[in-house]
């Protein structure tokens, strides 16, 4: 099914959805959101893209194979345990690093928790797209 309206709208929407997914990922620590939901939103963007154009073009837009993306994401999540190990804490202890903090301002927090969430984001994106591509492929 080729629809000019859908294709035109998708160009705009995909960018917005992807941006929104990153927003959800970043706010996830203290507010509703997080890696899993953000990953689902991002995969919705690619699903929409595949529906408007074709499966092949969605695959090309993703650039890496979804299974590989999922594996890399899960490895990133696992890697978030490493800083805790180096400091001698039990696995998955949350650690924070504050960049550019001043008086009254803690600075930009970079944490192992965020790294874990980024991993989950990629893993969910990869896994959902792998499933979707497999079911749609005929």
């Amino acid at each position: 099914m080729i629809s000019l309206i859908l294709q035109g709208a998708t160009r705009l929407l995909v960018a917005l959805i992807l941006l929104f997914s990153v927003y959800m990922l970043m706010r996830g620590h203290n507010l509703p959101g997080g890696g899993f939901i953000a990953g689902l939103i991002a995969s919705a963007a690619f699903v929409l893209y595949a529906l408007a154009w074709s499966l092949r073009e969605a695959r090309e837009a993703l650039r890496v194979s979804p299974v590989k993306l999922a594996a890399i994401g899960a490895l990133i999540s696992l890697a978030s345990a490493v800083p805790g190990m180096l400091k001698g804490f039990p696995p998955f202890t949350g650690l924070w690093l504050f960049i550019g903090g001043g008086a009254g301002d803690k600075g930009i927090p970079i944490s192992t928790v965020l790294l874990f969430d980024v991993g989950i984001y990629l893993a969910v994106l990869g896994a959902v797209l792998a499933l979707f591509f497999t079911i749609e492929e005929d």
């Binding site: 899993f36 896994a127 959902v128 499933l131 497999t134 079911i135």
Partner: peptide, 20 residues
């Protein structure tokens, strides 16, 4: 529940693919 939903989602998607 969130964990269970995530797992359930994966299992259901898998089962659907299997049925297909």
């Amino acid at each position: 529940i969130l964990t269970a939903i995530v797992i359930g989602f994966g299992l259901l998607a898998f089962t659907l693919a299997l049925v297909v």
